[in-house]
Amino acid sequence: MNKVMTQIITLLVIASALGAATNSIRPTSMPWMRAERINGSEAVTNTATTPKVVPVEPKRAGSGSVANAVEPAPAAPAAGPLTAEDVLLHLKNGSARFVDAREQHEWVEGHFRSAIHIPASAIYANIDRIVREVPPNEKIIVYCGGGDCEASHHVADALKNDFKYQDVTVYVKGWQEVDSKMSMFASYVAKGD
């Protein structure tokens, strides 16, 4: 019995050491302890509360010359957790890239037309979808089903820690809120693949 116990302890110690070593040398290593969340929003929401104002292109006059009058920029979303109005503003302005962290069957049922699909069940298998077209300094808003869903937090965490995206925000209320306010979002929503 002692021999078996010794083997068990050896087995677990070696395996734990291998796990620790692999994690430390992996290019996308995970922190041992997960960061605590702040007010129901992930700590990765770093610069999310200071959205950039999108400059508006000057309108060209009929003669082709650049007009002096510049259309005022749409109001920037207010600080704090993202609301439906903030999300709508970003969609209108194109001032953020949206990442849908839900699974395929949820994506097919409805998603933001401009969103990039990175299901949390296969983050690394699909990461190319965002890495090849979104630079690391661009604003990214990640959403999942809303409520208690974890998917958006994991994708946001990976984008920030593993792929060095600097401005990642989780839209905590997620698709649940979009669905309940569909009349607001209808023109930005697509169905199917």
Binding site: L11, A15, G19, T22, M30, W32, R34
Partner: peptide, 16 residues
Amino acid sequence: AYANLVAIILPWWELA
């Protein structure tokens, strides 16, 4: 907070 710890170690226990 402990989810990462489990995710790093437990699969290696399974393998071993």
